[in-house]
Amino acid sequence: MNNTEPWKKYVPETVSLYHVDYRENLDEREDLQEQCIRNNNMGRLYETVMECYAEQEAESLLKILGEIKEKMAEEKRQEEFEEHREEITNLILSRNDTDPAEELIKNSAAVNMYYSPGTKIEERIGKESKAMSCYKVRRALKLKKGQFDTLIEELVDNATYGGELRIYFNAGFNELVTNDNGEDFRTIRFHGDVIIAVANSFNGSGYHISLPLDITFPFVRDRLFVDSQVRYSYAIEVCGMCRDWCDSTSWETEYKTVRNTGRNREKE
């Protein structure tokens, strides 16, 4: 190497400024996942992650700069290093091949979520007849009269305090973020053995059943929720369920199909 060679030659083609341990994930930050879903972008996640990994980035950057400075000093190019230090730093940053946010997402388990068709079942104590409650469930799920009557009656009978009709499923939260504020998913489809619940978030009650369905709804983001982030989480606080309890619900948006993979099972 001669003294006319550009300083860029000393900068590695790729660098890793971050290390995310396989045990690090977002499983305890479902509040952050909910914010990303609500905003339909990953901005809040990246802000939080970069704050957490800022020190690691700085240490890695200083180490690489030190190695480059040492190599250039060996060839009597210290002045060139100091002259181009800022440019060298920017080039190192641009050649980073590790995204800590993506690594954390990969390490995270699927999240218990629910979609609300927008149907409310009233309390059975003198406010709404059993027949009317069953009718509202059938109408929301687009079922024919008499279809799954026994199971729907079971659902209504055991959800004494009424509540919101919900469809429960597991998903990686990032799969429901388009990162496009101008366009969102148009439809969401549920199929397989679909978990249907009537849950009351005000008094912590509810009941659920499984129905073999194939049903598509217009996608309304305001009807999509991370279960743990609502008052009296049905899965955790009401029923004490394991994470994989609603794996039997398969789902897809208009863009891609999501099948039950390893992420849809409780992490070991």
Rank of each mutant, 00 (worst) to 15 (best):
L61S: 09
L61W: 14
K63W: 13
I64D: 05
I64Y: 13
I64Q: 09
G66C: 10
G66F: 03
K69G: 00
E70A: 15
A73P: 00
E74W: 14
E75G: 02
K76C: 07
Q78G: 04
E79Q: 09
F81G: 08
E82W: 10
E83I: 03
E83Q: 15
H84Y: 15
R85V: 12
I88L: 02
T89Y: 06
T89A: 06
L91K: 14
L93W: 06
L93G: 04
S94E: 14
S94W: 04
R95N: 09
N96E: 05
N96S: 03
T98D: 03
D99Y: 03
P100H: 06
L104D: 09
I105N: 03
I105Q: 06
K106D: 14
K106C: 05
N107H: 15
N107E: 02
S108I: 00
S108K: 03
V111S: 10
M113H: 00
M113I: 07
Y114E: 03
Y115I: 02
Y115E: 02
Y115H: 03
Y115C: 05
P117S: 06
G118R: 01
T119K: 09
T119H: 03
K120F: 06
K120R: 12
I121S: 07
E122P: 00
E123P: 09
G126D: 08
G126A: 12
K127P: 00
K127L: 12
K127I: 10
E128Q: 15
K130Q: 15
K130R: 15
K130I: 13
M132T: 15
C134V: 13
Y135L: 10
K136A: 00
V137W: 03
V137K: 08
R139D: 14
R139V: 07
A140Y: 08
L141S: 07
K142V: 04
K142L: 11
K142D: 11
L143E: 10
K145F: 04
K145V: 10
G146L: 10
Q147S: 14
F148Q: 04
T150M: 14
I152Q: 10
I152W: 12
E154I: 06
E154R: 13
V156S: 09
V156P: 08
A159M: 04
T160P: 00
Y161E: 11
G163V: 10
G163A: 01
G163T: 08
E164Q: 11
L165S: 04
I167S: 00
Y168D: 10
F169V: 10
F169L: 02
N170A: 03
A171W: 06
G172F: 00
N174S: 03
E175D: 13
L176F: 15
V177W: 08
V177F: 06
V177S: 02
T178R: 07
D180C: 14
D180H: 08
D180A: 11
G182W: 08
G182E: 13
G182Y: 13
